[in-house]
């Protein structure tokens, strides 16, 4: 099974070393910026920024191609829909449906936007380990404990879920092979037959997941885990120069897109 999408890519680039909280906020603001930037100039700025970030992070470009590939059908679909539904001056006709100048422009905008969205948010997961990501999320959400939200427990559940994805993938492969060795026919037949053929895989997987969950709970209790209350942490996040610089860049990016769009009204 191939689950490259969103997997951490180890490196020691400046982007990797940024505080996860800063990166989380950055991605949020970046997404908002993309939606605000309804013009080519604005999105051009976002693209230029993203390309710079990719260069600084020293990530291979093929990683992004891999992240975008699975949603390619969605991109094409939205592009086609937008092509026909924009209205305006017809450029040419396909089967007597008018393709307009505005249609071409909006579908181009939509495509650029989706790609920027996916590439930008993949950037976050490529450069941040799952643990520091959930750590950062926990710290960012911690003010919500005032509303009795169990932020630490939520973050711990997320960490555990992420940690077990590769384990369960491996386990699924093993069980599938074991059943194939007994003649299971998983790759052929109609939908119903295929779903039925997966029962011998899912039941053992479920049983072993429960077993793992109990084992993990016992192991955590053995180390005196009692939840978030009074828990201190080994790694204390401290914002460094680079983090402030990143936040500065973020504000400049957001501001310039707003200015370009709403003040200057550039297309």
């Amino acid at each position: 099974m191939d689950i490259t999408f969103g997997q951490y890519y180890p490196s020691k680039s400046p982007v990797h070393r940024l505080d996860p909280r800063v990166k989380l906020i950055f991605v949020l603001v970046y997404i908002v910026t993309i939606f605000l930037g309804t013009s080519f100039v604005g999105l051009g700025l976002c693209t230029a920024f993203l390309i710079t970030a990719v260069i600084i992070s020293r990530l291979p470009v093929r990683l992004f191609a891999k992240a975008i590939k699975p949603i390619l059908p969605i991109i094409i679909f939205t592009a086609i829909i937008n092509l026909f539904y924009a209205g305006g001056d017809p450029l040419f006709y396909i089967f007597s449906i008018a393709v307009t100048k505005q249609g071409v422009l909006t579908s181009l905008l939509v495509v650029v936007r989706i790609i920027l969205l996916i590439a930008g948010s993949s950037m976050l997961t490529f450069t941040t380990t799952p643990t520091s990501l959930t750590d950062g999320l926990e710290r960012l959400l911690s003010p919500l404990t005032v509303f009795r939200l169990k932020v630490h427990e939520l973050a711990m559940m997320m960490t555990i879920a992420l940690r077990f994805i590769p384990t369960l993938t491996e386990e699924t492969d093993k069980i599938m092979n074991a059943q194939k060795a007994r003649g299971a026919d998983i790759d052929s037949g109609g939908l119903f037959k295929r779903v039925k053929a997966l029962v011998p895989v899912f039941i053992p997987l479920l049983v072993s997941s429960f077993r793992r969950a109990f084992d993990l709970a016992v192991a955590m209790e053995c180390r005196c885990y009692t939840g978030g209350e009074g828990r201190t942490r080994m790694k204390i996040f401290k914002l460094r120069c680079a983090d402030y610089l990143a936040l500065g860049i973020m504000i400049v990016l957001l501001a310039s897109v707003i200015v370009i769009n709403f003040v200057l009204g550039l297309v």
Binding site: K174, I175, N177, A178, Q179, A181, R182, V199, P200, I203, P204, V207, S208
Partner: peptide, 13 residues
């Protein structure tokens, strides 16, 4: 060619 994997009891269903 029958193959019994390691810890085969985890395949019982």
């Amino acid at each position: 060619v029958g193959l019994v994997f390691q810890y085969p009891e985890y395949q019982l269903f």
